[in-house]
Nucleic acid binder design. Structure first.
Lengths: 209, 209
DNA sequence: TTTTTTTTACCTGATTACAGGTAAAAGAGC
DNA sequence: GCTCTTTTACCTGTAATCAGGTAAAAAAAA
């Protein structure tokens, strides 16, 4: 049996690179290439597909949402995500939305081939560098940081827009004193001296938006 | 004459994609492929090269510095930069350091071919999307933003670390009042209400570090 | 249901930031 | 030389933040 495979990437060069790589694999058949997720969604309704290799950073619709949409209707299709750089949270998000694996584009040809074969066999696969990314920071980066509550995030966002305590209170229909308490709690939670340090911290850790 | 060409990219897939593309061009001969700039610098001393296609985001040494180094010793080599996303300032920097062109990786095969041919003929070339990037934002993004002076950047950096006016004054051996003046000037320059808004602005525009 | 977290709210005092105006010395550019 | 920008510095007053303690609804989790 030959696995009907499609490639989704907004870089023509990358598509041709992957296509060249996959042409070595006998039981993989490339049936189509796409530069956006929209065109893939059209195609998928009328054609049988077994395997999808997709870039995560795509125009219009991103890889995570694309994966989720496809998996809802076609759970049997094996989907492998790719990107140049990667963050732990992004990889986890992709897997939680049904992805069968994640490969960094700096992976070697052998890594690519191994991952694809294992994914077809039903395994969840990661390229080497992805493995180190998702295993290491678990103890320090994500578990150490408590995370903002909904209200705290609202207030932090308004703080980053330069609003004063009074303005935030007016915006959220709260008492001045309530907002003041939230401010203090946020600062204490991360042991920050003032909003300046807090916002630097929040922005660098992508905790706003 | 066949142009001796090397490709530098830390993604094996991209290398093979470009190699596949260039194999169609009769007067281009790919003599070597590299995953980092260091190995290229070694190679270049002992071998004749006419054309280099290089990724800008490389490990250890970045594309801009690599281009500068090569051009100092070998000004006749034609160097074309590539990247996935691009900022205006980065493209300009690359050209100012001797680059002969810049192509976004989402360019079509035809764009790639055209750019390479024109670059060989001595032109400075850009792919379509790069052209729009470097022409459009001139009036709003870059010229509108005055930029921080050295001292202002020092102070802004310490502010982002949560330091108070007095602490900054102590750190930089300045009067409290001097730092206060700088703070006000920075806020006025960008019409920001307070440090919170300022730091959001500076970080989002990569104006710190 | 009980427990924990979140959200709401108040009081006080010390510290700091912000807005206004002013100005001289040093350096860069023409 | 002159001009513009930058860096340095001072004074005053108002407004806002920060740190301390306290506490009761409301919501979420156990």
């Amino acid at each position: 049996m030959r696995y009907k495979t499609v490639i989704v990437d907004d870089h023509p060069i990358v598509i041709s690179g992957i296509a060249g790589l996959l042409s070595d694999l006998e039981n993989i058949e490339i049936v189509q290439k796409f530069e956006s997720g929209i065109s893939l969604l059209d195609y998928i309704e009328d054609h049988k597909i077994d395997l999808i290799l997709m870039d995560i950073f795509l125009p219009i619709i991103n890889g995570v949402d694309l994966c989720k949409t496809i998996k809802q209707k076609h759970p049997k299709i094996v989907i492998i995500g790719m990107s140049s750089q990667s963050e732990r949270s992004l990889v986890m998000q992709f897997i939680q939305n049904g992805g069968n694996g994640y490969i960094l584009k700096n992976a070697s040809f052998d890594e690519f081939k191994n991952c694809i074969y294992k994914a077809i066999d039903g395994e969840i696969v990661f390229s080497e560098e992805v493995k180190t990314i998702i295993s290491q920071p678990l103890s320090e980066d994500l578990e150490r940081i408590p995370g903002l509550s909904r209200r705290e995030r609202d207030i932090a966002l308004l703080l980053s827009q330069g609003k004063s305590t009074q303005e935030i209170a007016d915006d959220l229909f709260l008492s001045f004193l309530t907002v003041q308490t939230h401010r203090r709690n946020i600062l204490q939670k991360y042991k920050m001296k003032n909003v300046a340090e807090l916002i630097t911290f929040l922005l660098k850790n992508n905790m706003l938006n």
